[in-house]
């Protein structure tokens, strides 16, 4: 009994620094933020709550309320697009590329994943700009009479995001595909399935848990990101993270920034609850 108690005391002592750190620098600040969201601004000063004023303002001010839908629409588009583009890519690398070149192909397919996130968004601003490579090529070839504006629109944000998450999803789906035993495909072929049927009815369903996990990760990272919409999307329509930063920067409105963050958290939690039964976190 006393040995057990000593063991427990030692275990607690070892875990304590990490627990205290998380408590002090994550949980308490998080609590302070939730508390702040229950206050509201009067002029330039924060009036502590608890009260619903700030949340009520989100739902009555269209420019704030709209941000929730802008974020949801962008994130949903990016998630669907990224999965649809990444799955075939991962499948081709895993099954069509000769084994010798497979590592190299995968390395190339995710190479820009390792550059700085800020720089990657900037690179797309270079490519998509009015004088950028794409518009230059299209007008040069005579396919377009005038450059079309892509920069500072939602399209640019979606392209920038999709670029990043295609790489992420290719990695997760690829690792899923190579773990599958080739016997599944062989058995299905022996039983008379066409190649297309094998993919659609056997391989695709088997990778679903991995795909769902990757899609959830994409959803969470995409909806919380400030950099990509700020650099590529411009200020015509603002996503939730952009609104949060705007409240902080220009107005110093901490209660509103906090309330919008709580809304963001709530959306992510709902998304998790909705997809929890599909997720297998250990499969990533």
């Amino acid at each position: 009994m006393s040995i057990e108690r000593t063991e427990r005391r030692q275990a607690a002592g070892l875990a304590a620094p990490a627990l205290l750190w998380t408590l002090a620098f994550f949980l308490l600040p998080f609590g302070a933020m939730v508390w702040m969201s229950l206050g509201h601004m009067e002029g330039r000063t924060v009036v502590p709550g608890p009260g619903p004023e700030t949340y009520a303002r989100i739902f009555s001010d269209p420019s704030l309320f709209r941000g929730i839908f802008v974020s949801l629409e962008i994130t949903a588009t990016v998630t669907v697009l990224s999965v649809a583009l990444a799955w075939p890519l991962a499948w081709i690398i895993a099954t069509r590329v000769p084994a010798r070149w497979r590592r190299l192909a995968l390395l190339l397919a995710v190479l820009p994943f390792w550059t700085s996130y800020v720089v990657r968004s900037y690179s797309w601003a270079l490519v998509l700009g009015e004088k950028g490579v794409i518009m230059n090529a299209l007008t040069g070839l005579g396919l377009l009479a005038e450059p079309v504006q892509i920069m500072a629109t939602r399209t640019a944000t979606v392209i920038g995001f999709t670029h990043f998450f295609v790489m992420l999803l290719t990695l997760t789906i690829y690792s899923n595909l190579v773990q599958l035993s080739p016997n599944y495909a062989r058995a299905a072929e022996d039983l008379g399935a066409s190649r297309w049927q094998v993919i659609r009815l056997v391989i695709l369903p088997l990778t679903l848990p991995g795909v769902m996990t990757g899609a959830f990760l994409t959803f969470v990272l995409c909806i919380g990101d400030y950099i990509t919409p700020q650099i590529l999307g411009g200020n015509n329509e603002l996503s939730l993270p952009q609104l949060i930063m705007l409240q902080l920067g220009r107005r110093g409105d901490f209660p509103m920034a906090s309330a919008l963050s709580v809304v963001l958290m709530a959306i992510v939690t709902l998304a998790y609850a909705a997809s929890a039964r599909w997720l297998k976190m250990d499969r990533v």
Binding site: F25, M33, V220, I223, G224, L248, L264
Partner: peptide
């Protein structure tokens, strides 16, 4: 307790940063 240590993984960096900024100001 394990859950507590893992928890920050599920929260956007923006929200972690905002919480810390308020704590630092406070």
């Amino acid at each position: 307790l394990r859950g507590l240590i893992i928890a920050p993984m599920t929260v956007s960096y923006l929200i972690i940063g905002l919480g810390l900024l308020q704590a630092v100001n406070w």
